[in-house]
Structures are given as structure tokens and as C-alpha cells.
Computed example of a mutant assay.
Amino acid sequence: MDTILGPLYYVVSWIIVQFHAFYSLIFNKDSGWAWGLSIVSLVVLIRICLIPLFVKQIKATRNMQALQPKMKAIQERYKSDKQRQSEEMMKLYKETGTNPLSSCLPILAQSPFFISLYQVLNHIAQGKVVGVIDKPLLESARQAHIFGAPLSVKFMDSASKVESLGASLTDVRVVTVIMIVLMSLSQFYTQRQLMTKNVDLTVKTPFMQQQKMLMYVFPIMFAVFGINFPVGVLVYWLTTNVWTLGQQMFVIRRNPTPGSLAFQQRQERLRAKGKLKEDPAQAEAREAAESARAARQQPKRQPKSKRQTGGPGHSVASSGKTTLEKQDQESGEAKAKPAGGAARGAKSGQRKGGPQRPKHPTKK
């Protein structure tokens, strides 16, 4: 490990020494503030350099979310042929220009610095010169305390080792436990924010289940591994978690995933400020709906006096009633006619059915 990462030991130790020289102008050079802020500044510098990779990570994560339905279809289609399934997956990645490892680039790029810092602090705890940290700086770093805990000690170190650095085991364990809890909570909140606000809610994919699982796995990992890390490494890890949380909050607010809750909230904010330009098709559909709503008027209810005395409805009803009454009256009169009427009808029928007058011969 020392042979492979040896050059990085010099890089990490040189950066820390430069920041330590700057903070020594403000604080005591042997204080935990000078050395602790040097580690924090190292994190900030590394994360600033990793911003381009972070942007690629965001794009890769969104592409993977969009591809989840197609990936699931490929898995179902070639369930019994793993080789064909792998080939189709690689073909899909190539067609869409997606790299599954892009979402891990910031972590992979940061890992060598994390390991190098761990080894530098481990050398300091053992009293060994490392990188550009010579004997005077080594002794200064060993005596540096943060809230009573030396930067080079661990939760699992013995009481004799901790006391040799001028601290108590209780102070070391209280500080390390608090830092581990803060690390776990910051990681949990970061992952939960990603799951609840920046995931497309219209698509249910296995990717969401994986993210949900990681939301609970990472805090447990921090708790397990944290007790074996020096206090200085815990400072580094807590700082990078806080940076990640703030960076993600900024991205979710300014550039959320389409279809997510954060995207809807951003659209509402822009609409309230009048900065959201509405799609012409949506504007046309909205105007058509409003016109149809305006044209669809409910009939007005007329007062009782108007319904009784006037109005077209009353006239139609009256005329209908009059016609019925006339028909009833005529039928009643017909029934009440004397028998003479029937006799006259019979005579007229005889006249119609009687012998006809001979027609005059047509003159030739």
C-alpha cells in the first residue's frame, strides 16, 4: 500500500502542511484548530476539484433512472440466457451513451485521498515521519486535540496510548461517538432527500428500491467502520458528508429531476414569479377549456309569477291544454248528437250509394 500510494502521501501531507502554515497565523500552531481546519480545508479543496465529476454523476444517475424500465424488460426477456442479457445491456448503454460507473466517479476519485489521509494520520499516531511532515511537525500534530481528543487516536485505542498523548479515554470515545452519529445522520438525510424529492415519481423501478436500501445500509457502515478510524479521518469524513448534503440541496433546488417532487416545487416557484414560460400547446388547451366552460351556462330559474303569467313555456303548455280540451269537447258533442243526425247521415249515405243519374251521351 505504501509503495502504490507513496506519492499521494506526499501530496496529502504537503497540502495539510500548507494549510497548517496559514492557520498557524490565526491559531496556536500546536492546537487542534490549526490542524483540524487544515483537514477540513483539504476536503473542501478536493471536493471543489471533483465538481465536474459530480455533474457527470448527476447525469449518469438520471440516465440510469430513465433506463430502468428498458433494463427490466431485457432482464425479463432474456431471463434464461445471462450472456445474451449482458450483451443487450451493453448495447443499451452504448446506444444511450450511459456509463454505469459514472455515478461512482466522485467516490472512486476521492478514495485514494481518503486512504492516503488515513495512512498519514496512522503514521502520525505511531510517531513515524510521513511525506513532508518532519519531526517538529509530527510532534505538533500528535499533540493537537479537538474537543479533548487527539487527531491521531481511535475509539478502540487503549487507555495507556490515549493518556500518553495527554487525553482521557472517555473524552476520546465521547468525541468519536458524537462524530460517528453526525456522520450517519448526515448520510441518512442526504440519501432520504434524494429518495423523497429528486426521484421521478411516475416511474417505479428497482433503482428506487436499491436507493432505499442504501439509505439504511450506509449509516450502519459508518457506525461499524467509524470506530476503527482516527479522529482526524472522522473529521475528514464528516466534512465531506456535510459538503455532499449542501451540494445536493443546491442541485435539487436549482436543477431537479423531471417528474420529481422537487421539480414540481420549482415549477410552482417559477410560475409564482412569472418566470415560467408556458408551452404554446398547453396555453391553447387551457384557453379552449376556459372558452368551453364560459359557453356552458346553466339556465336561469324564473320567478313563480312569471312562470304563471308569461313566458314561452306557459304559452306552449296553455296551447297544449287548449287543444286537448277542444278534442274532448268535440268528442262529447258527437256523443250527445240526437238520432236524427244519424238518420241524416244514413240518408246522405243512401244518396251517395243510390242509383246514379245516367250520364249524357257524349256528342260525337
Rank of each mutant, 00 (worst) to 15 (best):
L169P: 01
D279C: 14
V162L: 03
E95H: 04
I178V: 15
L324G: 13
G232Y: 03
L92F: 06
D81S: 08
I107W: 04
K94R: 15
I227D: 08
D81V: 12
D171T: 15
D30E: 14
A295Y: 07
Q57Y: 05
W243G: 02
A289D: 07
G97L: 14
K154I: 00
L245D: 00
A159F: 04
P100K: 06
Q329M: 06
L270G: 02
P230I: 07
L234M: 05
V12M: 09
Y23G: 06
V40M: 07
P150F: 07
Y236P: 02
G311C: 07
L324Y: 11
Y78I: 05
M71F: 03
M89V: 05
D328P: 00
R173K: 14
M213K: 10
G36F: 02
N99P: 13
G349W: 00
N198R: 05
K154N: 08
V172E: 04
F155A: 08
S31I: 13
P106F: 05
S315C: 05
F263H: 06
N198I: 02
H360C: 00
Q68G: 12
E163S: 09
V224P: 04
L165Q: 01
R296Y: 06
R142L: 11
G226R: 04
P69C: 09
H314A: 15
Q57H: 09
S24T: 07
R307G: 10
R77Q: 13
F222T: 13
V17W: 03
G310N: 01
P106C: 11
Q356R: 13
A262D: 11
Q57N: 14
G32L: 05
P219C: 07
L92T: 12
A149G: 10
R47A: 08
G340H: 00
S318Y: 12
Q248K: 06
S305N: 05
E284I: 05
A346M: 05
G349E: 04
R142V: 01
L50I: 11
A66F: 03
G36V: 14
G340Y: 06
M183V: 13
A144C: 11
A292S: 14
S152G: 03
H123R: 13
Q209Y: 03
P312Y: 02
E284Y: 00
E76P: 01
G311F: 00
F54L: 13
